[in-house]
Every structure is written in structure tokens, then in C-alpha cells.
């Protein structure tokens, strides 16, 4: 078995837009992710992030190349069930991911569909709600929740399937700052418990929280490294992105004569570096 949990080997995917006109969203892309990694997948609108996510759980099949999840190819239809179970996805809009009125029914929907025993379903619903900190909402209706809470319920629904990999496809984009924080806290906690997390985002502060950032540009991997490596690469703007506000500020300050140890990616580091020079 390979040392990688996710292996994308030279995958390409095109959308037909109109007759005789295709858009290549993913082009001959290769990427490997280890079990337990926390990866931020970023890139400007149209860079192929969401297409790649849909390739990962077999919603789309690559036109060329191959995608393996724990060594299993997504191309084989017999594996679709297995892949969907392994790779859980949470989408952008908190308002269209619930299927039932009552929260516990909503979370039970996935395991019910794959024929999990009743006792086991109850246990999974308990655990999933606990993991996202929503246990007390068990018998409430989803429509009354805040955006952040709705997304936590969506994550719980995925967790009830016992996935190995959690993909957040811009799941925080429509949330307010508090909702964003809630989701990122849950994602970090799940990652610590062993789940591989792929967070698709174009919020650079959020990307900086990951262990590894993969930047896509025109359907290919343009930059791949730790947040510090990626933000120090000097290629972020060329990929249509910007540095996190703190990193941007540090750069401005360097023009003013300040010097920092390498690239600064969080407020703590910046404050420390500044104090050293000013006190």
C-alpha cells in the first residue's frame, strides 16, 4: 500500500460549455496527500479547486489520469460507494445541505442509506454531534440555526459516515467571522483526531492555519509547501491571490526598515518581531 492516502496522477477534466467549446478546469494535475494531513487548497476563482474536490470523491471522473483513495481508483464504479464513504464533502451554502427537518434525522440520513443498524446509527449521531459541539441541538430544527451551526450540522452528517477524509469546499465562504471560526475550530479538532482535512478556501488567513498549502492556477499545481514556504515564494500574486493581511503588513514594514526572521504569517510572530526592534 502506498504511503499516500490520496494520489492524483496526471488528472485532467474538461467541462463542455457549449458545442465544440470545452473548458479545461484541471490539467494534467498530480498531487499526493498523506493520511492525517491538513491541506488548504487555494487559488483564484476558476483555478480548478472545486473541480478537483469533485474528482476526489468520484462525483466527476477524470478525462485523463487516475485518482486513488487508499489505493482504490475512483474510476471503477464498483468502488463509488466505498470512495463516498471514505471522502466526506461539505459544500458552500449552509442552506441547501439539510435533508430532514429535525437535526438528528438529518445526521442519520447517511448511515440509514447504507444500511447501518439502528443502535449503531444512534451511537454515530451522538458522536457526530459531540464532535461538532452541537449535542444540545439534537431534536431542534435546522432552519432555525445560524450559518455556522448549519455548517457544523453538515459536517456532523458527513462524520456519521465515518469518513477518513473531510473536504470542505469553501464551507466558510458564506459565513460571518464567528461562523468561520466555529468551522475552523471543528476542522482543526477533527484533524487532531486523525481525519485528513482538505480545506478549499480563498481566505488567506484560513489557509495559513493548514500544515500545507496547495495553490492551483489554471488547473495545475502552481505552489505547494508549508504556509511559510508558500507565502515566501513570491508567487502568490502571480496566482491571483494576495498575502494574508499580517504578512502584507510585515512586508510594508520591511520597506520601512524593519527586519523579520523569515516570512511572518500570524499576529503573534509579527508582534514579537516588532517588539524586538522597538523596545
Amino acid at each position: 500500500m502506498s504511503e499516500f492516502q490520496i494520489e492524483i496522477k496526471g488528472a485532467s477534466y474538461s467541462y463542455p460549455v457549449r458545442e465544440g467549446y470545452n473548458v479545461k478546469a484541471v490539467r494534467n494535475l498530480s498531487l499526493s496527500i498523506r493520511k492525517g494531513e491538513f491541506v488548504a487548497l487555494t487559488g483564484m476563482n476558476g483555478s480548478g479547486k472545486s473541480t478537483l474536490a469533485k474528482l476526489l470523491n468520484g462525483l466527476f471522473q477524470p478525462n485523463e489520469g487516475e485518482i486513488l483513495i487508499d489505493g482504490i481508483s475512483t474510476a471503477d464504479e464498483d468502488n463509488t460507494f466505498e470512495i463516498r464513504k471514505k471522502v466526506g464533502m461539505v459544500f458552500q451554502n449552509p442552506d441547501n445541505q439539510t435533508v430532514a427537518t429535525i437535526i438528528e434525522d438529518d445526521i442519520a440520513f447517511g448511515p440509514e442509506n447504507i444500511g447501518v443498524e439502528r443502535e449503531e446509527i444512534i451511537k454515530r449521531v451522538d458522536e457526530a454531534l459531540e464532535a461538532v459541539g452541537m449535542s444540545e441541538y439534537r431534536t431542534r430544527t435546522a432552519s432555525k440555526l445560524s450559518g455556522g451551526q448549519k455548517q457544523r450540522i453538515a459536517i456532523a452528517g458527513v462524520l456519521a459516515m465515518k469518513p477518513d477524509i473531510l473536504i470542505l469546499d469553501e464551507s466558510t465562504a458564506m459565513l460571518d467571522p464567528n461562523g468561520r471560526k466555529e468551522i475552523m475550530d471543528v476542522a482543526c479538532r477533527l484533524n487532531r483526531s486523525g481525519i485528513t482535512v482538505v480545506n478549499i478556501t480563498h481566505n488567506m488567513d484560513e489557509a495559513a492555519l493548514a500544515d500545507r498549502i496547495v495553490v492551483l492556477r489554471k488547473g495545475r499545481v502552481a505552489i505547494d509547501g508549508t504556509p511559510k514556504e508558500v507565502f515566501a515564494s513570491g508567487l502568490i500574486e502571480a496566482c491571483g491571490l494576495t498575502l494574508p493581511p499580517i504578512t502584507e503588513l510585515a512586508r510594508e514594514l520591511e520597506k520601512e526598515g524593519f527586519e523579520f526572521d523569515g516570512v511572518v504569517i500570524n499576529a503573534e510572530e509579527l508582534a514579537e518581531g516588532l517588539c524586538r526592534l522597538l523596545k
Binding site: M44, E170, M174, L241
Partner: peptide
């Protein structure tokens, strides 16, 4: 600007 990338 909700949902737009940084340049957007």
C-alpha cells in the same frame, strides 16, 4: 465581496 477571491 462575499465569496470572491482576494483579487476579486
Amino acid at each position: 465581496v462575499a465569496g470572491l477571491d482576494p483579487i476579486g
